[in-house]
Write a protein that binds this DNA or RNA. Structure first.
Lengths: 248, 248
DNA sequence: CTGCATCCGCTTCGATACTG
DNA sequence: CAGTATCGAAGCGGATGCAG
């Protein structure tokens, strides 16, 4: 990408990670260190030359590293540097901002269970007292382990079959709706576990970030808001207006 | 931008704000509501048709609004919606991640004093007990007022000439170096104020976020880090390797 | 003067094919 | 498996024009 050529921390950050696909490459490496082919499979639609160029640029910039895996696997593995791992907060915040965009559901989009880790991190902010609970999530070809507790909620991509208090299995959008507390009459994704665990689970999802509390956290508003008389601050829309077309 | 076509909060957010220039438009509107011409001046290098298209897309997506300013000014003013203002956190976090990229200084880049507000927000995280102090910053054609106190640090673009405890005037990079605590032998930007204020100022900049504490905040690392034997976690580099060229 | 639209050379992207 | 090479299509950057 052509540099913006600005002395600004934000635009210089965008010079590094502002290209198309770049943030998504970082997302995959935040979920797990990956080989080239893993990344290619995890990023449906990326051209192979683009992936190669992004990886090269990110490595030159010091965001990622590649390691030749020696004996048994014999493959090159890409992973984030410490600096690159600092993007974790940024991606989670951006995902949190984008959570309302999940409301329309999957539609024709691609879906991989692993992508839920960001939605989940967005849903359950860092420090809060969550009930102690492990949840196994099986969705769209991936298996995740959510670990809630006093320290917060962590979610990792895991190998299948481990033990957990609760198991949820279903399509990503159903799982997400369940986790975000949209337990209407019928739970959209089947949840299994014993009664005590189910109760703690119910407690957990009642703590999900609802996006209606966010109005207080507003940025600087230099011009007076009284430009329009009788202005009443509107609540954050759960679902922003969708006039643009998706999947062009 | 073509949609990524993924059921993922992050990539759907990028579908909205992932285009080139888009985040920078949001940056300007976070600093202050602006007219078309203001934005065009504040974004050196953007093509006029691109700015128009970005504004249209952002408005359709519900990120910004435009208001016809009626009587005296007779101009259209663009501003963020509440949802759009929710990007504040994201941009500050990204700016914080990009702060090390400011180390090389301005060079041939454009510079506007207003852009310092993000560097400053990145430097002084939200809740901490800062000394009570106001600082007037005059840099690269803009004037800012920094207000520190128990509630945190806020910085706003202001009209020239107001009162403050401290005044800093200089090029953006010198001002930034001063604020980030790089007070070597000679302060790079002239700082004026009475002794008591100067002492509180010295206190303030000693609290600036140094990027060396950030190593603890790491993302999920699914593969064992012991893949490379004798791995010692490297500290976050103050200045990431710069092999890529700027200002293509 | 503000707020764009149009045109054009150039770069980047997307898709497929091909190679060590 | 891990990329490079190629080529049409789309997007960007810069200049210019023009209506309210």
């Amino acid at each position: 990408m052509k540099s913006y050529g600005e002395f600004c921390a934000l635009s210089r950050a965008l010079d590094v990670v502002g290209d198309r696909w770049t943030i998504l490459v970082v997302r995959e490496l935040l979920i797990a260190p990956s080989r080239y082919t893993d990344l290619h499979k995890a990023l449906p639609g990326i051209a192979t030359n683009l992936l190669a160029q992004r990886l090269r640029t990110l490595e030159e910039a010091g965001v990622i590293t590649s390691e030749e895996q020696p004996a048994p696997v014999s493959a090159q593995v890409y992973m984030l540097t410490d600096w690159g791992r600092g993007l974790h907060t940024v991606l989670v915040d951006l995902a949190r901002w984008g959570v309302p965009l999940l409301a329309p559901g999957i539609g024709d989009d691609h879906s991989q269970g692993r992508w839920l880790v960001f939605a989940i991190m967005a849903l359950f902010p860092e420090r809060a007292d969550y009930p102690s609970l492990t949840v196994r999530i099986i969705a769209d070809g991936d298996e995740l382990l959510l670990t809630a507790g006093a320290g917060g909620v962590q979610t990792t991509l895991t190998s299948p079959g481990g033990p957990a208090d609760i198991t949820i299995e279903g399509r990503s959008d159903d799982v997400f709706r369940t986790l975000s507390g949209e337990l209407t009459d019928k739970p959209t994704a089947p949840v299994s576990g014993d009664d005590a665990a189910l109760q703690r689970f119910s407690q957990l999802i009642s703590l999900a970030y609802t996006h209606d509390l966010d109005v207080a956290a507003l940025g600087p508003r230099t011009l007076t808001a009284s430009a329009s008389p009788g202005h009443t601050p509107a609540p954050v829309p759960r679902q922003p207006p969708r006039t643009t077309q998706r999947r062009g």
